[in-house]
Each structure stands twice: as C-alpha cells, then as structure tokens.
Amino acid sequence: MNSSDIFTSIIFYLCAANVIFSSIFTILSRRIMHSLLFAVILFFAVGIIFLFLSAEYNAIIQIAVYGVAIPVLFVLAIMFTSHRIDKQVYLSFTPRFIFTIISAILFVLTLFNILLISSSVIEWLFTPQSVISLNRYEMFNAISDGLYIRFLLSFEMIALLTLSVIVGLSSLNIFKGARNG
C-alpha cells in the first residue's frame, strides 16, 4: 500500500465513476448533443484507464478514434437529422423491457459467478506493474510485431475493409438533397 498504489487507485476510481455516470447520462439526457458529449467524456476516461494499464498505443488509438473521429461522424449525422428535442427515454413495460431486465440480471449474475469461480484460480491481489517488464521500446516492438507479422492477414483485411467502405459510401450519394436544405 504505497503512494503509487493509492495514486493509481484514485485515478482508476475517478475514471470508473466517469465511465459509469457518463454512460447513464447518455441514455437519460434529452438532447442528442448532450448525450454525445457524455459519450466523449466516457471515451476519454476509458483512454486514461488504458494509459494506466500501460497500454499506451491502445490509449492513443482509443482517444483518437473513439474520442475524436467517431464523435465527428456522429455530429455530422446529428446535424443533418435532428430537428427537435426528444422526449424522455422509453420506459413502458413492453415485453422487451422485461426481457432486457431479465437478461441483464442473468448476464450479470453469470459473469459474477465466473469471476468468483476464477477468483479461486487467480488470486484477487494480483498486481500488474510487476509483471509487464517491458519498456516502451520493447512494447512498441511487440505490438508492431503482432500487427505486421503475426496478424498481418487480419491487418490487411481490415485495411481492405476500410478501403471498400470509403469507396462504397462515397459512391452512394448520401447527401443528395442536402445542398439546398
């Protein structure tokens, strides 16, 4: 229980609180822009969590893609579509409400059970910092190793996918009537 531990735990709890409350407020807010802003807060908080897990590359990508690029997309869509303020979130007792509640509870219980079972295998007090013994250079080496050597095929396929998406969406004439509107 040293100061670095306390420091990491405080950061972690703050970010976790951010995550949880941002997610709740994105669902509950009336205006889409507000919910989008809460989403941005969430993605940034998740990025910070990644940072503290010594996954810098992942943190950067998370913040860059999820924190900036995706909100840009969303803002574009919102600008072109929303005209009025939403009403409150749907809470009627339709079948799907009951099913979600039941399945959410079941899911949580199941995974909790798995956690408890696995806690008998992996002890709770298992700290990371002593384990990841790589420095930044070695980490970078390892990740690029994974991307370009071991999982090159997947990387190439994602690239191809991205290319096809760009080409396809740009050939779609999405904003046909938007010039005058």
Partner: peptide, 13 residues
Amino acid sequence: FAYSFLILALILT
C-alpha cells in the same frame, strides 16, 4: 436484439 440476448443469457446461465 432483446430476445436474442435473452437466449444468449439463458445459454450462459
């Protein structure tokens, strides 16, 4: 989606 997730949750359970 709710129905399919329910089935998934049941299978997991």
